[in-house]
Design a protein around this nucleic acid. Structure first.
Lengths: 145, 145
DNA sequence: GGAGAAGTGGGGAAAAGTGGTGAAGTTATT
DNA sequence: AATAACTTCACCACTTTTCCCCACTTCTCC
């Protein structure tokens, strides 16, 4: 499972190197990833295996229900798969960078979040945290009870 | 189960040696630990086995629910695993040191707390204790009845 | 007081992260 | 249809950080 936080930079070509500790968390030899737009304003990266389980859930939705069809469009529209290059980097497509307000040659915050990796604009992540008024203890008590 | 208190120093590289008495409390040959931010202003260190039970709870949460996703981010962001080096030390990442107000080359208070080990800035621990008005005797009566 | 264990400090090899160049393939233009 | 220009992707090289190992000091327990 992914965990930890890391600060890397997106280079001028839109490449992002995946922290080695996160790479080691992935089931061996699977350097295939799928990235898509996050439900929060970030980029979500899934190992290919994990993406399959999400895809299965999507397949159970009914595309004739407008709302479910919309969700399918939104999530698949931005989905891209890629394999790591020889320097363990993935190439992030411009639409995803736009969505997450990430600029090339700037620092990004990489979060390990169990089954997925999240990539944030550090400023946006701060703003995101501030939107919630509750303290860590309060949330822990509510969610983990 | 961990118990006792110890005073060690964080070295210039952010390393902390785990007291030998605590090491002996851990189930044999498991020198794998996971540390994360405490609900109190300290660092919590769990043996890897113990952490798994926490992780299982987290995996049952639904990352498409905003509040549950937030909690996953908060707890996993600070989670780091590490194994003891040949001198029985672990490396504590800067974000955790910041959170617990611990500086390098300073003394820290290490507490054995049953299933986990806690690392405190000694000053912060005093402040923490003073926040509670009740006496030891009163708390005991309330909690243990 | 001595021997062994525990705790602290530091240096060097190896890996991780970043930047860049060149070849191959694609598109466009003459 | 051929050539030029641009984009894409794989590979190479350098810098920085990490981590592993060795050495010394201090404390503990006979």
């Amino acid at each position: 499972m992914f965990k930890g936080q890391y600060t890397h930079t997106i280079d001028a070509k839109g490449r992002l190197s995946i922290p080695s500790k996160l790479r080691k968390s992935v089931s061996v030899s699977s350097d295939q990833f799928v990235m898509t737009k996050g439900t929060a304003p970030c980029i979500e990266i899934y190992p290919a295996d994990e993406w399959k389980t999400i895809e299965e859930k999507l397949l159970k939705l009914n595309p004739f229900k407008p709302e479910e069809a919309l969700f399918i469009r939104l999530i698949t529209q931005y989905a891209t798969d890629d394999t790591l290059d020889s320097q363990s980097r993935i190439l992030i497509p411009p639409p995803l960078l736009d969505y997450a307000s990430i600029e090339k040659e700037k620092d990004v915050l990489i979060l390990g979040a169990l089954k997925r990796i999240e990539v944030w604009n550090p400023v946006k992540y701060d703003e995101y945290l501030k939107r919630f008024n509750e303290s860590y203890e309060e949330i822990a008590a509510k969610v983990m009870s």
